[in-house]
Design a protein around this nucleic acid. Structure first.
Lengths: 137, 137
DNA sequence: TTAAATGCAAAAAATTTGCAGACGT
DNA sequence: ACGTCTGCAAATTTTTTGCATTTAA
């Protein structure tokens, strides 16, 4: 089981490794990106007594610790992903699916330049490419 | 009054030019980017009887006609802007303010290439740069 | 004149909160 | 044993809907 990895992660961030949390993390991990309802549906399969409130509370807690990252989407509810190195998203306007794509360096560089230009303290960039995925067309 | 411009816009899209709609458009125009509550607050100053339901219905209608564009944000409620040529956003993580920045061609090109690579039908790209604005730091 | 839009109030959906009991460490 | 976490139910907040009336064209 690679659950041990998430277990470590939680400990590292001083969060108790409850079964609910481990399921939430593994759900998001296996889906790649998931909104609240999707996380709830998937975790319920293994933790049938989990409550939606618990999912909300944990997503919030994990976001605060930067263990998760929000992916706000036009037209769809926000999804959540495990934090990883900066990357871009292909978002399907039909089904709302999200796919990761690597980000090239020149985009990162010019984003930082744009921020600097406007006296913005650069934190991170988010590049979402909206279109129609191969399944939907 | 440059209201005549918005009046034209609405006619062009076969939407009745009600005072409420004109106020909503001019509110978003003057704020640049605004969420539902901000639109409601500002329009209420000139159309004191406007209801929040009317704001919701109109934002939805204007989005469907592509006269407005949603700007989904991490941590903040979605904002709305008048549709214009593709551009990027600087988003302040502290206050949620949004500033437009021009997008360079190489970013557009490589975004299209990324989409093509994954067999995505490219529609549009959204580049949000998160940081801290000069006022907030 | 007429289809579409408004505003209200009510309904539905989404999210948050408080708290007693359970559980991880 | 302690403090955190869970699950429930209730509260709150956000968004949508239905409908009688008004209004733009």
């Amino acid at each position: 089981m690679q659950n041990s990895k998430n277990l470590e992660l939680l400990k590292e961030y001083n969060l108790k490794a409850t079964p609910q949390r481990l399921e939430i993390l593994s759900a998001i991990e296996s889906l790649g990106h998931a909104n609240i309802d999707e996380v709830y549906e998937v975790t319920k399969k293994r933790q049938s007594t989990i409550s939606l409130a618990t999912v909300y509370k944990n997503i919030t807690a994990l976001l605060e610790k930067n263990l998760l990252k929000e992916v706000a989407l036009n037209n769809f509810k926000s999804k959540y992903e495990i934090s990883k190195h900066s990357h871009s998203h292909l978002v399907c306007k039909e089904c709302g699916s999200v796919v990761d794509v690597d980000l090239n360096d020149s985009i990162c560089q010019s984003s930082k330049a744009m921020a600097k230009d406007k006296l913005f303290d650069f934190k991170e960039l988010e590049l979402n490419i909206y279109g129609v995925c191969s399944k939907c067309k």
